[in-house]
Design a protein around this nucleic acid. Structure first.
Lengths: 154, 154
DNA sequence: GGATATTGATCAGTATGCTGACTATCAGTA
DNA sequence: TACTGATAGTCAGCATACTGATCAATATCC
């Protein structure tokens, strides 16, 4: 176990590092300036209109303190609207803008292409297997991070 | 592909997130305050006494601008020494201290335990297969990040 | 030898992620 | 209703990671 290559933690960091680089490269070539984190948040807001920030964080397993900044940037780019909730004055309801929807539509091919590039060393079957194993390991470790995945309850 | 769970990039981020949390928890319980990144750097310095920062960065695939801060903190904790190289006055030679060696020795059980915890949802065979697939995908994507892995040439 | 290119390290700036703290608000209960 | 606890959001502070720039020193080429 002395070798980094035998450490799942090190391999995880490395794969994630490559995944982010590939995402930014593909999306950048398509003419957009959106990070993987911002993309996931935006897509989740579109799929769940009016959700609050804590729910958003749970759906994509982000820390609630991280979400604040991510939403700040989405709002600043004009892709998302944040407004006070009428039911709960603590909460902020999030909505995707028309501009956000347009961006999502146009960016999707680049995002899907990126997912392929980051698996380019693997056969289709190996890629599937890698995703299956990651999903399984993640499910077992979900509660171990400060920002676990939370399904919607409604 | 609309689902995050079908995106290798999202799974990568999530697995890495859990891996870091597990590492910090195990190491913290053992009474140490060292991040995964700092651990990998320290272990690599020990294995390659006198190496410079660029070489260190290449061996663990860190960006060279990141290494500066990581080494700063290792030096500040008294685990590493940084001194000017005599052969190349631009370079800094890194050396592990006695305190650093002691820390590495004592921390190793916690680190190895962490590697097991982050795979606890998988069988031994599945864990091996996950690491094999990660290694393969990483090898194919090595040049795609700004901080690729570089073997030592000497 | 001297111009040019490259390299090692650092810095400023930005974006995740986290810890821990704090405010405002809400929910449940005595 | 007043008290207590929980919750939504934010903030300060720290540690990765990256982009792009700069400076000093070394290498290379004519």
């Amino acid at each position: 176990m002395t070798d980094n290559n035998d450490m799942p933690g090190h391999l995880a960091r490395r794969f994630q590092q490559i995944a982010v680089a590939v995402f930014l490269a593909e999306v950048g070539e398509a003419g957009f300036d959106l990070t993987p984190v911002q993309y996931a948040a935006l897509a989740t807001i579109k799929a769940n209109p009016g959700l609050d920030q804590v729910t958003l964080a749970g759906l994509i397993a982000y820390d609630r303190t991280t979400i604040t900044g991510v939403v700040d940037r989405l709002v600043q780019k004009g892709l998302t609207e944040r407004r006070a909730s009428s039911r709960d004055r603590r909460a902020r309801e999030l909505e995707i803008t028309e501009e956000g929807k347009r961006t999502l539509r146009k960016i999707t091919p680049a995002v899907e292409s990126a997912q392929g590039v980051m698996l380019r060393g693997l056969s289709a079957k190996e890629g599937e297997e890698l995703m299956r194993l990651l999903r399984k390991a993640i499910a077992a470790g979900n509660e171990l991070s400060r920002a676990p995945l939370r399904k919607v309850q409604a």
